[in-house]
Amino acid sequence: MITSPCINICKMDASSGLCQGCFRTIDEITVWSRLDDAGRQHILADVARRRGEQAPQENNLRSNGNAK
């Protein structure tokens, strides 16, 4: 069973087009309930990749902030 990555933030980021909580697009959230496990795995892999791409930036911001 593959559960939804929703963490109840449910707000779209206008610049990335991704939900700020689960890192899915509107299309991906819309179709989630119709997908089989393979389709959901595919989205979760994309979500993990996007999260990874965003995290280093956040870390940079944080360390820059600390440096000041």
């Binding site: 929703c6 109840n8 989630w32």
Partner: peptide, 13 residues
């Protein structure tokens, strides 16, 4: 589900 239905699965809030 019938094609005429779509569940937008949300969370707890």
């Amino acid at each position: 589900l019938p094609a005429s239905m779509l569940v937008l699965e949300r969370g707890w809030l």
